[in-house]
């Protein structure tokens, strides 16, 4: 299958996105941010629609939109008088509704919509692949540099605060990284399925080891492996790549649950 240039690019993207999602996924699992991940990724739909309507690259507007929603959620999380879950629900259903309304205004966009919802990795250009690699590197480097600080906050946020650690900054940063990773993953699996790559490989890794270093490395490796396996499956079976990749991850998760007997 690698005789085609577009397949080579797709494969590189799958490895890259899998690794970035797996790395960040460690903290999504540890901090129980899965629902927030859903909120941020689904809200990107509104951004995509705005981009298509204005004739700007939808990934740019989706990125701006997702980061704005991430920061909005970060602000809301600090307020004790609002129910976090409810507000996230409002954010993402609101921006999805906005997206759907905008899409309905021009039926010509519907083909594009499908690609953003479920991924369209075979259409990835070389420039996009480079951008993706650059953004992925930034995300992973940020996590590596802030690893111990973020672990401290996950362990005891209040003590971290008492010791003068920049807790609010790092909490917001984590959500912004989620937004950036969602955009990185849109091409591969689309906004509706990116959450799976953020959660499933990391949850699988947590079944196998109980040390943060090995969990992160394993999670990133599993993310990449699922990307490759899913893409190969999509090629040979002629099925949608995004769904195939996520199914590979889910199968791996349930196999791990069975083997590890923690289910």
């Amino acid at each position: 299958m690698l005789e085609f240039a577009f397949m080579q690019r797709a494969l590189l993207a799958a490895i890259l996105v899998g690794a970035v999602c797996g790395t960040l996924g460690f903290f999504i699992i540890l901090r129980r941010l899965a629902f927030i991940g859903v909120g941020i990724s689904h809200s990107a739909i509104g951004g995509v629609a705005i981009g298509l309507l204005l004739g700007i690259d939808p990934l740019i507007t989706a990125g701006i939109f997702a980061i704005a929603v991430a920061l909005g959620i970060a602000v809301v999380r600090k307020r004790a008088d609002l129910s976090e879950d409810a507000v996230i629900g409002v954010f993402f259903s609101g921006s999805m509704a906005l997206g759907i309304v905008l899409f309905s205004m021009n039926h010509g966009y519907q083909q594009d919509l499908f690609g953003y919802l479920f991924g369209n990795v075979l259409a990835l250009s070389t420039t996009e692949l480079w951008l993706l690699a650059g953004a992925g590197l930034v995300v992973v480097a940020t996590i590596v540099l802030a690893l111990r600080e973020m672990l401290f906050i996950a362990f005891d946020e209040e003590v971290a605060r008492a010791y003068g650690r920049p807790v609010d900054l790092l909490n917001s940063l984590l959500l912004v990284l989620v937004a950036v990773t969602v955009i990185i993953g849109v091409r591969l699996v689309g906004v509706l399925l990116i959450e799976a790559l953020l959660v499933v490989p990391a949850a699988t890794a947590a079944l196998w080891t109980n040390n943060f270093r090995s969990q992160i490395v394993l999670s990133a490796g599993l993310g990449s492996a699922c990307g490759v396996a899913g893409l190969a499956g999509a090629y040979w079976l002629d099925i949608a790549a995004g769904g195939s990749i996520v199914l590979a991850a889910v199968i791996l998760f349930f196999s791990s649950v069975l083997i590890r007997g923690r289910g």
Binding site: R148, V159, A160, T209
Partner: peptide, 14 residues
Amino acid sequence: PATVRDVVMMGRLC
């Protein structure tokens, strides 16, 4: 997912 040593090191991050 952290050892006792890693957790104690958190107190030294500052």
